[in-house]
Design a protein around this nucleic acid. Structure first.
Length: 419
RNA sequence: GUGGGUAUAGCUCAGUCGGUUAGAGCGCCAGGUUGUGGCCCUGGAGGUCGCCCGUUCAAGUCGGGUUACCCACCCCA
């Protein structure tokens, strides 16, 4: 058996790669509309960054990281997500000292050691944004509008935005205690995972998918009723902003984030057609993270989306804009083939995509090759044409051909391809 | 980490009760057409039936194991 790509990774082959380029272009375009600038950070970072930035007790850090020791003895990890690296870079380069709002977008591969399945990979690719420096709900609404518009642009118009507030360090502990109290009586009805979560992170019981747990959590108090005044006002501000911007949403009090520096706004976009992995884009506010990583206290909000899932959810809706079909130069004889190569180069330098036959083959075989390459034109150059100083220019779509002087070909085709 | 499914040509898949030379469609190459793609006809190339072990006179087919992929749990994008 020859060597195969590692488990949970995949090769993005043409023409699928064209859809990736298209999606990345969509993302860049929307980023520019909303004032985001791209940042590129390393694919590996200090393991400690993720331990602190994502959280020691999360599954991602506890059992899904590709960690290794460098030859110099440093503990490093392939990034499992994008936010930690961006925040680290913002702090390291003192970009937050500039004041104002800083909007950063990024995309690239992330790595998580998970059991692969539909929509879940060990090397996944995300696009993401982070906005630093604005504490109010207006930027939350704008960020969600960005997400919604971006999804629509890539052909996912049926995604449902689910919104929640996870409170803040002032009100969340109070809710956590209330939740624990409410669950205490029904502990025996919880699944084994949730029995553990009851102690470690009771909020996570809320998004458990086991039926018995859902039954238990149906009547439990919701955080929305226990938010402090500031968090409640913030959420109302986000809702008002979304309505003003025309972004539909539903409140789902069961959306949670595991860590203390996630604050207030939390959201997910749910799309169909993805099986169990149906979250296509998710994010939230993390007003405590920059300070947690040693930077100046800075409010922030962001989201990330998995490219593989986006393309799956988009399905047929995601077009793969075809490249302009080339001019295929079919030649007969060594002298004509050499002239064809020169002609092709002249065409390319004039901005016209050109292809040639590298070997001596029958004209029929070359015409089939031209059709296979979806050529717009075939340029047929044989001994006779070479002697006359012209070539047959065949319109592959129309199936008509005319003789054109070699001297005029580049100018003529450059004009047609420019149109 | 747990469970289920699948594995035959480049791709998508047939393959009967275990039976002698493993098939189809698409794709590829060539010819029909001495210099013209798509449609048609003819021919050709291409296979360690995932891998190992076992049962049997005989295994693509049955059994065990293993690996990979897929799906679900879990977790998340």
């Amino acid at each position: 058996m020859p060597i195969a790509a590692p488990r949970g990774t995949q090769d993005i082959l043409p023409p699928e790669s064209r859809r990736w380029q298209w999606l990345e272009e969509c993302f860049r375009h929307h980023g520019a509309l909303y004032g985001y600038r791209e940042m590129r950070t390393p694919i590996f970072e200090s393991t400690e960054l993720f331990a602190r930035g994502v959280g020691e007790e999360t599954d991602i850090v506890a059992k899904q990281m590709y960690s290794f020791q460098s030859r110099g003895g440093d503990a490093l990890t392939l990034r499992p997500e994008g936010t930690a690296g961006v925040v680290r870079a913002m702090i390291q380069h003192n970009l937050l000292a500039q004041g104002g709002v800083q909007k950063i977008c990024y995309f690239g591969p992330m790595f998580r050691y998970e059991r692969p399945q539909k929509g879940r990979y060990r090397q996944l690719h995300q696009v993401g944004v982070e906005a630093f420096g604005s504490p109010g709900p207006a930027i939350d609404a704008e960020t969600l509008a960005f997400a919604s518009d971006f999804l629509a642009a890539v052909g996912i118009s049926d995604a449902r935005l689910e919104l929640n507030s996870v409170g803040c360090p002032a009100c969340r502990p109070r809710y956590r205690d209330a939740l624990r109290n409410a669950l205490a009586g029904a502990r025996t009805g919880l699944c084994t995972d949730c029995t553990r979560r009851y102690d470690t992170n009771p909020l996570r019981v809320l998004d458990c998918k086991v039926e018995s747990c859902r039954t238990v959590t149906r009547d439990v108090p919701v955080i929305l009723d226990m938010l402090c005044a500031e968090c409640r006002d913030h959420l109302r501000g986000v809702e008002a902003g979304l309505r003003a911007l025309g972004v539909p949403f539903v409140i789902n009090p069961h959306i949670v984030r595991g860590l203390d520096y996630y604050t207030r706004t939390a959201f997910e976009f749910i799309a169909g057609g993805l099986g169990a992995q149906n979250t296509v884009l998710a994010g939230g506010r993390y007003d405590g993270l920059v300070a947690e990583l040693g930077g100046p206290a800075t409010p922030a909000i962001g989201f990330a989306a998995g490219i593989e899932r986006l393309l799956m959810a988009a399905g047929e809706a995601a077009p793969a804009p075809p490249m302009a079909g080339p001019v295929f130069i079919a030649t007969l004889g060594d002298a004509a083939r050499a002239e064809g190569a020169r002609l092709a180069q002249a065409l390319r330098r004039a901005g016209v995509p050109a292809a040639i036959s590298y070997e001596a083959r029958s004209l029929k075989a070359q015409m089939k090759e031209a059709a296979r390459q979806d050529a717009r034109y075939a340029l047929i150059l044989g001994e006779d044409e070479l002697a006359r100083g012209d070539a047959m220019l065949r319109d592959m779509g129309a199936g008509e051909q005319t003789a054109v002087a070699v001297a005029d070909i580049v100018t003529l085709l450059a004009r047609r391809y420019a149109a």
